[in-house]
């Protein structure tokens, strides 16, 4: 039994409207070369060997693109590579890469630790006797887009919200109105863009207006 597939070939696409048989075909844009980039170090995979995460890059490539892995890391490929470089330089390169890798790992570790330790400060600032604004500081350490977060706050609370530089030159979100508890709740519930923040790192602070000097 012939399977269904060969039944009705789709009607041939209308011959791409050729205006004039004699005229040269209209120039087409040249399609771009699609380049694969390593998900670990963002280089094209052939350059991973110069990156700082060679081991991880190799793992990634082996899993995602085994054919390319064979192309770049098979014994043959390694042989030809060594052929073009003196042995001494090659060993030096390998040593350097290993060193770099260790360094990069340590760096990543430190960055993660720093991220986990960084605090978010929600500050309630008195404007007038009964009016307050709320400033949220330190969200960017968790990779949150401040502009988007501020937009979210302003639409959620129906108040003004902006990203401003504080006196130290660092960016913070200022929301008008006393919404510190609500923001804390939002962070705990990971609403919208506020994701990946451990609730323990959030601190509520109150700032009273200084007595007139």
């Amino acid at each position: 039994m012939a399977p269904k597939k060969g039944q009705a070939p789709p009607p041939a696409a209308p011959a791409a409207a050729a205006p004039d048989a004699d005229a040269p075909p209209p120039p087409e844009p040249v399609p771009p070369v699609s380049v694969l980039y390593c998900a670990v170090c963002s280089y094209p995979p052939e350059y991973c060997e110069f990156g700082a995460h060679l081991t991880k890059c190799k793992e990634w490539l082996k899993e995602e693109h085994p054919d390319l892995f064979d192309k770049y890391y098979s014994d043959e490929a390694l042989q030809t590579k060594v052929g073009t470089l003196s042995l001494e330089a090659q060993t030096k390169l390998e040593k350097d890469v290993a060193k770099k890798e260790i360094k990069a790992e340590a760096k990543a570790d430190a960055a993660l630790k720093k991220k986990m330790a960084s605090q978010i400060i929600i500050k309630r600032i008195e404007r007038n006797k009964r009016k307050h604004i709320t400033s949220v500081f330190g969200l960017e350490a968790f990779g949150i887009d401040l502009k988007k977060a501020s937009k979210q706050f302003s639409s959620k609370f129906a108040t003004g919200s902006s990203v401003t530089k504080n006196p130290q030159g660092l960016e913070e979100i200022v929301v008008s109105g006393d919404v510190s508890d609500e923001i804390l709740e939002m962070i705990e519930n990971e609403v919208g863009v506020l994701k990946g923040i451990p609730a323990d790192n959030v601190e509520l602070v109150e700032e009273k207006k200084k007595k007139a000097e």
Binding site: V30, P32, V33, S34, V35, P44, Y47, F50, T84, A89
Partner: peptide
Amino acid sequence: HKYPYILPKVQVDRGAI
């Protein structure tokens, strides 16, 4: 990378990478 032919090419040896 997408359009590699737009600039003239020079090449360095492996040691320089």
